[in-house]
Amino acid sequence: MNPSIDLEAAKAAFFASGGQLVILEGFTYRPLPQRKHPEPTPKRRRGPDPVQKGNRQERAKAKADMVAKFAATMTCSQASKVLGISQGSLWDMAKRNGFSFVPATPGKHTPKPGDEERDAEMAEKIKALRDEGLTRNKVCQSLKTGHTTVTRLIKKFGIDFPSRKAGGAHESSQA
């Protein structure tokens, strides 16, 4: 038979036996409840509370004055180790506030006891090799020392040792 005719016959039998039609409620959207996060707890500071007087500029100026006192007697590296502040911060502070640190010994040569005598002997050897007609490079090779040391000794003892031959490097090729 026809399915729609069968359905109508079943509905009629249901209502005839006393059945009632119940309309169910459909789906309704309800959003999720709002999340409840706990309140953040403030971080506790370790150690004693800092004593802060004045505003930020006044504290920075006081710190710069303290660093300037150290700068009068120390190098930047030494002040950095004592104060626990990076060297870059100290240099920036010095530049902003117009003070400078004690200069460190430049280069690797730091005078030691007995250096004067050794330097004088080397200067005599340099003069002798210069008089033989050797170039600076040949002098460095024969003394087994570096160019910087030879240049330092030439300046220190006022040795007349030109870095090039008079008349230029191509003198022999033009003749």
Rank of each mutant, 00 (worst) to 15 (best):
F14P: 01
P50I: 06
L24V: 07
R59S: 12
R118G: 03
E25M: 12
K61R: 09
K81V: 12
I126P: 05
T145W: 01
D6Y: 08
T151W: 13
P33M: 10
E25V: 10
D160A: 12
L24G: 05
K81D: 08
G114V: 04
K61A: 09
F101A: 04
Q20G: 08
A123V: 05
R136Q: 02
G167M: 01
E58M: 06
D160S: 07
E39G: 03
S17P: 00
L83R: 05
A16H: 15
N97I: 03
G54F: 04
S77I: 06
Q52Y: 00
Q34S: 05
M93S: 12
Q78T: 03
F70E: 02
Q57H: 11
R164L: 10
A10P: 02
G167L: 02
P50M: 05
E116D: 14
N137C: 06
G88E: 13
N97F: 15
E116F: 11
R96E: 15
A9Y: 13
L134K: 14
D92I: 02
A175Q: 04
P3D: 08
R130P: 05
R130D: 13
T41F: 14
D119Y: 06
E132V: 07
L83P: 01
G88Y: 06
A71S: 08
A10H: 11
G114I: 03
A64T: 06
R46V: 05
T75W: 10
G47D: 01
E121Q: 12
F157P: 01
E25N: 11
K36E: 13
P31R: 09
P111N: 12
D115R: 10
P50V: 01
G107L: 08
A9G: 12
S142P: 00
T135K: 10
V82L: 14
R35H: 05
S172H: 14
R46F: 06
E121P: 02
K112M: 15
P103K: 11
P162F: 03
S4R: 15
L90Y: 04
Q87C: 13
V22N: 08
R59A: 11
R46Q: 07
G114A: 03
A104H: 14
S142L: 01
E171N: 00
F161L: 13
K11Y: 10
P113T: 07
S86V: 02
M122D: 09
K138R: 14
E116W: 08
R118V: 02
A71E: 04
T41K: 12
I85T: 03
R164K: 15
